[in-house]
């Protein structure tokens, strides 16, 4: 199983967008809120990651006016939902495996 920071960021973005379509700033805010500040990375790197997900067909986006400001709003696609389920399952397996290894140390 392969998990790298890019893969984890993709997983986090897909998970955040599952709840509702939102623009990049809102994605960052929700990520910070849900992770209790644990997921810290340069906020600007969210946008290239979102665009890469869009090129893979996992999210779709369009310009909308949000609070009087023109924002690119992202939403999860059906393929994105399937990818999220798969990535989340992989992540859970990985963390279970790591947990099992660490349990032997206690």
């Amino acid at each position: 199983m392969q998990e790298n920071p890019r893969g984890q960021l993709d997983l986090l973005l897909l998970a955040v967008l599952r709840s509702r379509p939102m623009h990049g700033y809102a994605v960052v805010a929700v990520l910070a809120e849900r992770s209790g500040g644990m997921c810290r990375f340069p906020e600007g790197t969210v946008y290239p990651a979102l665009q890469a997900l869009e090129r893979k067909g996992l999210v779709a986006s369009e310009w909308e006016r949000v609070d009087g400001r023109r924002r690119r709003v992202y939403r999860l696609t059906r393929a994105g939902l399937a990818a999220l389920v798969k990535k989340a399952e992989n992540w859970k397996r990985l963390t279970r495996g790591i947990g099992t290894v660490l349990a032997w140390q206690e």
């Binding site: 600007g44 946008y47 290239p48 665009q51």
Partner: peptide, 17 residues
Amino acid sequence: ARFGTPEAIARAHASAG
């Protein structure tokens, strides 16, 4: 500061593309 340096953001866009 939270957004990231222009160089880092440009690099992230380049590698994502």
